[in-house]
Write a protein that binds this DNA or RNA. Structure first.
Length: 328
DNA sequence: CGACTGTA
DNA sequence: TACAGTCGG
């Protein structure tokens, strides 16, 4: 879920129009999870094809990506790579929660309680290898590039923005700030009016709370991240106050915390020098209409007219950036 | 979630 | 044109 920074970070409101002509590095896992949990029927079951394969994520990627492109924005999806060993606990906890939710889902379904069933079905969403693979396949057929991160996708996205390959990272997670993403967009959706996007600029955020990124990372370590538990009783506001006056090490001493699970420096390294993939290229291609139709319509039962309409919207991409490099 | 349809 | 409701797969 990422670090809980909502209480100390203020976002600016921006418009999709403000992203026109810009490349946005989309946190794929974050986005896929939203599609998977959000695109469901009333009883909580996801969209599925005739063979019972889940297709909610495909629907989400297809329509949102097409609309984003239609608005002149250039999306690059960034997929997570290896899971950090420090994240094992979090991963295990999530798995347990999913399992519990799944059990309650079955119970609610058997009892005919649709609202309960839906709630627990959503909670049991999981990004299986099938979800990841089918998503990448769809992006390929759409001509939309994706980058495979070495570790965390947010860290990869942050690097891409710093490197000038993308203008901002799109993710719901505040972790992007910790990884040093200069610009972050939250709520990159089409619904909810036109000023629903949240924009965060790392420099502005740091200036406002009067902290360095290193200090912000230390606040996160107290609050708790996907990589460590944090200190019980310390939320974002308290953490911020504390770190303004003392170093994390001093705070630990003051609180009488002697044996930490993991040394702060090890955790700091995760956010401050995350291993990234520097060998990627971002190339927007024209959609492969035939493969796209074969995959989406024949294999997964999507409406041909809708898929063709998407293919039409995608033309906007190949036409905007052609002229130069496509000749070489 | 986003597309599409119906209603005013 | 704006939005509420439902469908999509």
């Amino acid at each position: 879920m990422g670090v809980k920074f909502k209480d100390i970070v203020t976002a600016e409101e921006i418009n999709l129009k403000d992203l026109e002509g810009r490349t946005v590095a989309i946190d794929a896992y974050n986005t896929l999870y939203q599609f998977l949990s959000g695109i469901r029927q009333r009883d909580g079951s996801p969209l599925m094809d005739a063979n019972g394969n889940v297709t909610s994520h495909l629907s989400g990627i297809l329509y949102r990506t097409a609309s984003i492109v239609d608005k002149g924005i250039k999306p690059v999806y960034v997929f997570d790579g290896d899971v950090s060993e420090y994240k094992t606990k979090t991963v295990e906890k999530r798995r347990a929660l999913r399992e519990e939710a799944n059990q309650k889902y079955e119970e609610a379904k058997a009892a005919g309680n649709i609202e309960e069933a839906r709630k627990y079905a959503i909670r049991s969403s999981r990004l299986s290898p099938y979800i990841i693979e089918s998503s990448k396949k769809l992006l390929e057929y759409m001509g939309i590039p994706y980058v495979q991160a070495k570790g965390e996708g947010e860290a990869q996205g942050a690097y891409m923005v710093k490197n000038g390959d993308a203008w901002a990272v799109a993710s719901q997670d505040y972790d992007c700030l910790l990884f040093g993403a200069p610009r972050i967009i939250r709520n990159l959706t089409l619904s909810g009016g036109l000023s629903n996007l949240e924009y965060l600029e790392l420099d502005k955020v740091l200036t406002e709370i009067d902290l360095s990124r290193e200090q912000l990372v230390d606040v996160a370590l107290m609050v708790g991240t996907d990589f460590n538990e944090g200190i019980y009783g310390i939320g974002a506001k308290t953490g911020l106050k504390l770190i303004r006056q003392n170093s994390l090490e001093d705070i630990l001493v003051q609180k009488g915390i002697t044996d930490v699970e993991v040394e702060p420096d090890e955790l700091r390294e995760i956010f401050l020098s995350h291993d990234v993939n520097t060998d990627y290229k971002i190339k927007f291609k024209s959609a492969d209409k035939e493969k796209l139709c074969e995959f989406m319509c024949e294999e997964h039962g999507f409406s041909e007219t809708r898929v063709l309409n998407v293919a039409d919207k995608l033309k906007k991409l190949s036409s905007t950036q052609k002229s130069l490099e496509d000749w070489f």
